[in-house]
């Protein structure tokens, strides 16, 4: 008995005791961490995916292990302020790495407060048009009209212009029409207004707008803007274009193809060409 006490006193004197203590602490801590992490994962087994379970188990295990190691090292007598310094540098590196994620998170928060659109609205961001199916913390998920799934990070929504197509109940369709130079513009205007009045889904108010945009290279360019309910937008465009083409054909109004005038050189007039069945081609200079 006395010899054991002497042995322990001897160990206490030397550093070996502290080292042994630390080693014992570490081993016990390791086993405890394993057991605790497995137990917790068993508890939440049904609620998480396999991926999530593994992540949880690993993080708990390593977390506990780090704690145990720190206290073991402290026991030996190593100064921990070096570790604190290392942890500080590690946090800064982590901060830089998670910059975009944090930015997305905060953008998402601001989007939620501002609420420019909500689920089932149709929005257009940069070049992507689609129906909003969910608004999450970091991103917004869209379904495009050809049934593709697009994930847009919140950060790019805050930074760029987002067009909400389903915000207002009525919408204007701008129809681009070109007529030949020989046509009477007033007559064309009356025809277009009559077509708009006859079309039942084209709103009477706000009234259709006739704008002469300019004299184009091949045609007189006209923009005819008509309004309709948002739901009828596509059928309005289709029905108006079809009706305009039909009426123009009936009234003999020409929608021209691109024109090109041929000249021989700077000083000459255009080549006169005649197409005659029996005679051969005549060339004039």
């Amino acid at each position: 008995m006395q010899e054991i006490i002497d042995f322990i006193d001897l160990l206490k004197a030397s550093h070996l005791f502290a080292l042994t203590q630390a080693a014992l602490l570490f081993i016990v801590g390791f086993i405890m961490a394993r057991l605790i992490s497995s137990a917790i994962v068993k508890l939440v087994k049904d609620k998480m995916t396999a991926h999530g379970q593994l992540f949880l188990k690993r993080s708990i295990f390593y977390g506990l292990l780090v704690l145990v190691s720190i206290s073991a090292l402290d026991n030996i007598g190593i100064d921990l302020s070096i570790l604190l310094g290392a942890a500080g540098i590690f946090t800064v590196a982590l901060g830089f790495a998670s910059q975009t994620s944090a930015s997305n998170l905060i953008s998402g928060l601001f989007l939620m407060i501002e609420r420019p659109f909500s689920i089932t609205d149709v929005i257009k961001v940069n070049d992507v048009t689609g129906e909003v199916i969910s608004i999450d913390l970091l991103s917004v998920k869209l379904r495009t009209f050809d049934n593709l799934f697009v994930r847009i990070p919140n950060e790019s929504m805050i930074k760029s212009a987002v067009t909400t197509l389903t915000k207002y109940p009525i919408r204007r369709a701008d129809l681009k029409i070109g007529i030949a130079y020989k046509e009477d513009i007033e007559k064309v205007r009356d025809i277009l207004l009559a077509i708009a009045a006859k079309n039942l889904i084209c709103l009477e108010e706000p009234a259709p707008v006739f704008i002469l945009t300019g004299f184009g290279s091949s045609s007189v360019d006209i923009q005819f803007s008509v309004w309709s309910r948002r739901e009828n937008f596509l059928s309005l465009k289709n029905s108006m274009y079809m009706e305009i083409k039909k009426t123009f054909d009936q009234q003999g109004i020409e929608i021209p193809f691109p024109h090109l005038s041929l000249y021989a050189g700077t000083a000459t007039t255009a080549f006169p060409l005649s197409s005659v069945a029996e005679k051969s081609d005549k060339r004039e200079k």
């Binding site: 009525i170 079309n199 039942l200």
Partner: peptide, 12 residues
């Protein structure tokens, strides 16, 4: 059926 129209102080 009469033509659709909009009645209000603005288009919104």
């Amino acid at each position: 059926r009469p033509s659709d129209s909009w009645f209000g102080p603005s288009t919104r």
